[in-house]
Simulated scan of single mutants.
Amino acid sequence: MTAVPETPAGAPAADEAAAGAKRTPIPEYEPELRGRAERFTVFAFVFIPLIALLASVPFFWGWGLSLVDIAIASVFYLISGLGITVGFHRHFTHGSFRANRALKIALAIAGSMAIEGSVVKWVADHRRHHKYSDAEGDPHSPWRFGDDWKSVAKGLYYAHMAWMYLDDKKTSPRRFAPDLLKDKDIVLIDKLFVPIVLFSLGAPALIGGLVTMSWWGALTAFFWASLVRVALLHHVTWSINSICHTIGEENFEVRDRSRNVWWLAIPSFGESWHNLHHADPTCARHGVMKGQIDISARVIWIFEKFGWATKVRWPDNERLAAKRVSV
C-alpha cells in the first residue's frame, strides 16, 4: 500500500483538532459490523443481475429481445447511470456544482435507481475511498494484497465487487457524510431506498407489458431493462474502482494509481477519465483533454444553461497545467 494521501476537496475535513482539541473525533466506522442478513442481501443484488447478464447471450440468440426492450433498457440505463455519475458522484460526493432543490431530489432518486446503495451510504464509502485512495483504509483498492500478479488478480476481484459483501466494516455516515445527514430531502430519499429499488425493477416490466399488451412483453422488459440493465451498470461502475486503478494512462500527477481507460468512457458517461478526477476531485469535467468524451460533464453543462445547476467547478487551465505529467 502507498502512503495515506491527504483528504481531497469535497470530502469532510479530517482534522478534528481544528474544531477544538477537546472534541472527540467521530469514528470512521459504524460500531456494529455487517450482519449476515445485510451481507446476504448485498450478495444477492450483486449476483442475481450478474446471472441475468451471463444468461443474456443464449436468451438473446434468435428470440426474446425487441426494440421495446432495447428502448426501455436504454432509458433506464441513462437515468440511473447519470444519477450515479452526475448525482451521487460529482454533485453529492464532491460538490462539483450546486443543484436547485428539484434537481437535487431528482438526482438522488435517479442514483438510487442504479441499486448501488442508498445515497448517504454511497457517498460515505466514496469519500472514504478518496481519503485513503490505494492506501490502508481504502474500501476497494485492487492493490490491497500486494503488487505481484496473483495479489493483483485477487485485488481486482475484491475491488470490483467482493468488498461489498466480504468487508465487515461499515463506513460511518456521521464521519464522512454529515452534510447529507443534515439535508431533510436526502435523508427522506435515503430512507425510501427500498421502494425506489422496487420501482427501478418493476417499472420496466409494467411499461413493457402496457406497450405490448402482453405478459411476455412484461417478462422480457423485466429481464433486459431491469436485471441485465442493472448488472451492466453495476459492472461498469465497479470497473472504475478496479480497472481504472490498475491499468490505463496517467496524464496528471496523483498520489494513487488512478488511471484513464478510454474504452470505458461511453458506458461510464465519462467516469473512466479517472486519473484527472483523482488529481482534481471537485472538477465537474473528468475528460479534459482533446478527444476525451465526458457525457456527464455535458449533462451538467445543460443543467447550468437551464439555471438548474450553479457554481459549476469547470477545469482551471493553470491548475491542470501544474498537475500535468511531463512527456
Rank of each mutant, 00 (worst) to 15 (best):
K154P: 06
V327F: 10
I84P: 04
G20Q: 09
R36C: 13
E30N: 02
N260H: 08
I243H: 01
E6W: 04
V299W: 07
R285A: 04
A225M: 15
K323C: 02
T41C: 10
E28W: 05
P267Y: 10
D183F: 03
K184L: 09
P142A: 06
S214V: 01
F176V: 02
L50D: 01
A218S: 04
T237D: 02
W216V: 05
F193A: 12
W149D: 03
A114E: 08
F40M: 15
V197P: 02
T41L: 13
H160V: 03
M289E: 14
R36Q: 15
S172I: 02
S226C: 10
R174L: 13
G208H: 06
L50P: 01
S200R: 00
A99T: 13
V4G: 07
R319W: 05
Y158K: 09
C244E: 01
G117R: 00
T171F: 02
I186G: 00
V236K: 08
K170W: 01
T212C: 09
T41E: 13
S200W: 00
F223R: 14
Y77K: 08
E318R: 15
E304V: 06
E32F: 03
P31Y: 04
M164F: 10
A11Q: 04
T2L: 15
W273V: 01
D15E: 13
Y77T: 13
W149V: 10
A11S: 09
G209I: 04
V46P: 00
N100M: 12
P142T: 09
T93Q: 10
D185Q: 03
S226H: 07
M164S: 07
W163E: 06
K131C: 11
I293A: 11
A110I: 09
W122K: 00
A203S: 08
A322I: 04
R98M: 14
T282H: 10
L232R: 03
T282L: 07
F88A: 06
I72P: 01
R98Y: 13
V312I: 04
L33F: 06
W224R: 11
Y157L: 08
G64H: 15
P139E: 02
L227K: 05
I70G: 12
I109L: 12
P204W: 07
I243E: 03
F223L: 15
